[in-house]
Design a binder for these strands. Structure first.
Lengths: 125, 125
DNA sequence: TGCCGATATATCGAAATCAGATATATTTGG
DNA sequence: CCAAATATATCTGATTTCGATATATCGGCA
């Protein structure tokens, strides 16, 4: 597996808002989706994701609804497993757009400091 | 002035190594250069930069030499102002290349999660 | 000439952040 | 029936980061 690159809060928020911009997801499914899509490079842990989701919800960037999944086998008597689905709010969508703009601007800025791409490669022209 | 985007360690190290890849600089001049080039978006503070420089030196990614600047006016008696010039080592140059590769790979990964560029613009075609 | 703002390096401690451990409960597959 | 996966949540120790503090010199201007 690839080296564990740690996504700090900023990137983290962008990634979470982005996946939620596509469709509603619940916590655990966010973890799995991000891991799969990033080829395991970005491994959200529960300890990082849940507090973030709670924060985003408090800021009204996302909204949640509980779902209770009852298994066939267990039947009536079972309490059922609980899932908390999150979806982006209009405010969240605006925030995402804004964060992306800022992110790209910042990355362009960083890139401007770097030696030009391919500065190390040998006469490929 | 633009919003204060804080460069965390990773980006920070890349930026510092990059400016040193161009030419030797001393601490204060690094702060000024980065501020100017980034249009004040990246403001290194002494409290962040100096410890980083010391770390980089300990890791032999950079080397330093002291310069004493004596003013005309003050003459012999003056102790002179001290500047610590830093230059990239061969090891530092390799590290930079490596960090850049990792940085770009990570950014590409993040970008892959984002809605495509210009997803919000209206029929400009 | 005396003072202030800029130049210059450096450390420290409070505050924020983060990864990993811990807790609890259900479901699925063997 | 048991272990691994699913699912949410918090807490704590370790690391990071920011801003304050310290010290000293230099340049310009009143």
């Amino acid at each position: 597996m690839p080296p564990n690159v740690k996504p700090q809060r900023e990137s983290l928020e962008i990634v979470v808002l982005s996946v939620l911009a596509e469709e509603p997801l619940y916590g655990y499914s966010i973890i799995k989706r991000v891991a799969n899509r990033s080829d395991d490079a970005i491994r959200l842990t529960a300890g990082v994701l849940y507090p973030l989701l709670h924060e985003l919800e408090a800021a009204r960037l996302i909204e949640s609804t509980w779902e209770t999944v009852r298994s066939d086998r267990a039947g009536e008597s079972s309490a059922g497993r609980k899932r908390k689905w999150y979806q982006l709010t209009a405010k969240g969508r605006r925030r995402l757009t804004q964060r992306i703009t800022a992110h790209r601007a910042f990355q362009a800025m960083i890139e401007a400091f770097l030696p030009p791409r391919g500065a190390d490669e040998e006469a490929t022209t």
